[in-house]
Amino acid sequence: MSERKATIASRVGLHARPASIFAAAVGDLTLEVTIALEADPAEDAMDASSILSLMSLGAANGDIVVLRAEGDGADEALESLVKLLETDLDAE
C-alpha cells in the first residue's frame, strides 16, 4: 500500500472544476485510488475517481488529504496526483 499526503492548493477547495480535473485524472489510471482527510481513519477513505465522493469530502484550500493506492506503479501514480492537488487548478 502506497500512501502520500497533499495540501489542497485550489482556492475554492476540492470542488467544482478542480474536482472534475482530479476525478478525471484518477479515472484514467488502472489503479484504484482512495482519498481521505488527514484527520480521518483509513477505513473512511473514499473512491478518488468519484467526483461526488470528492465533493462530499469537502476538502478546503490548505486542508491536507491522504491518497492511497496499491499495485504496480502506485508510487508514480500517487506522485503525479499529489502534484495535481498542489496546483491551483481553478486558476488555469
Binding site: S49, S50, I51, L52, S53
Partner: peptide, 8 residues
C-alpha cells in the same frame, strides 16, 4: 463526470 460516477 457524475453520469458514470462510481458512488452513483
Amino acid at each position: 463526470l457524475m453520469a458514470t460516477d462510481p458512488m452513483l
